[in-house]
């Protein structure tokens, strides 16, 4: 083999390795769900409105059988497959969650207690609620919990057999049986990242339901970035 051929082969191999490394870094390590920014929409002194939905599946992703949250972009009103959002520090946050998923009991019924919201209350289809009994009735699908600020909101589910058997089949959901849960809380005055999570073991296909979407940002856990 001549010298130019050997040099060329070496160069190609080198570029292949470098290219592979760059692909891995960009595709796997740096890639992540987008952050929905609510800071630019917030008028001074006015509450920030966040609309979420929980979908029984994620047909827009490569994990179609995973349950997932979606966030509605405040500008375009399009659903974004992400669990990252940014809010202004110290602002009042009004949250609406459209619960399209069916019921699953809480692993610890203690988390049926609403805490950290204004008045420690949530509104399920307009009805003020302070605690949901997921062990006594089909009432809870997931939770929206930010441990760092003591926020815990169980998200109510459709309660009937008919509704649970006819859940929305394409995500993000635009129709189908669902509940509407609203609540308000005050964002921390200290800028920083606050993780949030679901406390229902909803990772279908994983041991005790704890893997998959439960452990993956963009599905059933994410971060609230509080901007100064």
């Amino acid at each position: 083999m001549s010298l130019p051929v050997r040099v060329g082969t070496l160069l190609v191999a080198f570029l292949a390795v470098v290219g592979g490394a760059i692909f891995v870094v960009i595709h796997y390590l740096l890639a992540g769900p987008p952050t929905v920014d609510f800071t630019s929409q917030a008028a001074p002194g006015q509450p920030v409105h966040i609309v979420l939905q929980e979908a029984p599946q994620t047909t827009v992703s490569d994990r179609p059988d995973w349950v997932s949250y979606f966030i509605q972009d405040p500008a375009s009103h399009q659903w974004v497959h992400t669990t990252l959002f940014k809010v202004p520090a110290g602002s009042m946050i009004d949250v609406t969650v459209l619960g399209y998923d069916g019921c699953t009991p809480l692993r610890n019924p203690f988390w049926g207690k609403i805490s950290g919201t204004v008045g420690n209350v949530e509104y399920v289809n307009g009805k003020p609620t302070q605690v949901l009994n997921s062990w006594g009735e089909c009432s809870v699908a997931h939770t929206f919990s930010i441990p760092g600020i003591g926020l815990n909101v169980p998200i109510a589910s459709p309660t009937t057999l008919a509704a649970n058997n006819n859940l929305c089949g394409t995500s993000p959901c635009t129709s189908g049986p669902h509940t509407t849960v609203t609540f308000s809380f005050k964002a921390p005055a200290t800028p920083g990242s606050y993780f949030w999570q679901c406390r229902i073991p909803c990772g279908l296909g994983f041991l005790d339901g704890f893997g998959g979407p439960m452990q993956t940002i963009g599905y059933m856990t994410g971060e609230m970035e509080v901007a100064g």
Partner: peptide, 10 residues
């Protein structure tokens, strides 16, 4: 409810 597994139980 007729639910089992991921549809409603552990």
């Amino acid at each position: 409810l007729g639910l089992t597994g991921a549809g409603g139980g552990y």
